[in-house]
């Protein structure tokens, strides 16, 4: 702070508190709705304090799903989301780190060609090539499978760039010393590069875990089998539309469950997350 202006400090706190309240209010109401009965919710206006249905609603969705919308239990969906998020985040990190290692630490024909090939994938988000990608995955027989849910999303130009950038900052002396001691490239990779990259790996993990957990369009297209739904898709499927009543209390309990794991990852790994996010874009 440059100078002491008490009223400005008060204003700053007030604005921040108002901002947090506005951002948190939907979350609070979601939680409230997830502890009520459906009748309490549809009676306008719904109560603004939590009700007594917490265990009933949560255990109901975890084991049985809804009556009118998707009937798959949310426990299974959470497992699917977890598998998808972990495979995508770990897979992305694994294939990107070795690809950047090859690009940074070797000279070989077509090196820059491969680099550019990875680079242009930045320009092809899944949303613009929905139908042909769907066709490829369906031709490969990967519909309704974990492979189909994860593999097409594993290639990542951003992760490759981040590692490349980081590797450029590793002092050349380390590679020289390793070579003099007779260590091959793979030995150098495992014993020097990977331990040094720990922070970047942690940062990328947070970002990619959230990316994987929150996938929507892709699982929507390739999962028709209820047992392969991810949680985010499950919520959408629980809202039947048309005349059938939406069981909002159960939908909201599922929404809470869908938000909890990624929010925990962000809050608990905040330091790495912020570092990774801000550095990724540099």
């Amino acid at each position: 702070m440059v100078e002491n202006r008490p009223w400005l400090t008060v204003l700053a706190h007030a604005t921040l508190i108002a901002g947090i309240a506005a951002i948190a209010f939907p979350l609070y109401l979601t939680f409230v709705a997830s502890t009520l009965t459906l009748n309490e919710i549809v009676e306008v206006p719904m109560p603004l304090l939590p009700g007594g249905q917490f265990w009933e609603n949560y255990s109901r969705v975890l084991t049985a799903g809804t009556a009118f919308g998707a009937k798959a239990p949310v426990g299974r969906m959470l497992l699917n989301s977890l598998v998808v998020a972990l495979v995508i985040s770990i897979g992305k990190i694994a294939i990107s780190i070795i690809a950047s290692f090859a690009i940074v630490y070797f000279r070989f024909p077509l090196r820059s060609f491969f680099f550019w090939m990875i680079f242009v994938t930045l320009m092809l988000p899944v949303e613009v090539r929905i139908i042909p990608t769907f066709k490829v995955v369906s031709d490969l027989g990967m519909l309704n499978s974990y492979t189909g849910l994860t593999l097409p999303l594993i290639a990542s130009a951003t992760a490759t760039f981040l590692f490349r950038q980081f590797f450029m900052t590793i002092p050349d002396e380390l590679a020289e010393a390793a070579r003099m001691d007779g260590a091959g490239p793979l030995r150098f990779f495992w014993d020097v590069v990977v331990p040094l990259s720990k922070t970047s790996i942690a940062a990328l993990f947070v970002i990619q875990f959230i990316y994987g957990w929150n996938q929507y369009l892709w699982p929507l297209l390739i999962t028709t089998d209820e047992s392969m739904y991810t949680t985010v898709i499950g919520i959408k499927r629980m809202i039947p539309g048309g005349d059938a009543a939406t069981e909002w209390n159960l939908v909201m309990a599922t929404a809470m469950l869908a938000m909890l794991p990624p929010a925990l990852v962000v809050v608990l790994m905040q330091k790495w997350f912020v570092k990774g996010l801000v550095e990724q874009e540099k």
Binding site: L16, G19, I20, I23, A24, P26, L27, T30, I210, W213, N214, Y216, V232, I233, I235, K236, I239, V251, A255, A258, M259, P262, A263, V265, V266, V267, Q270, F273, V274
Partner: peptide
């Protein structure tokens, strides 16, 4: 901390809320 958590919310879930 209180301001960054919505980053973790899926767009579809934000829509439902």
């Amino acid at each position: 901390t209180l301001l960054i958590w919505p980053y973790a919310v899926a767009p579809a879930v934000a829509g439902v809320l």
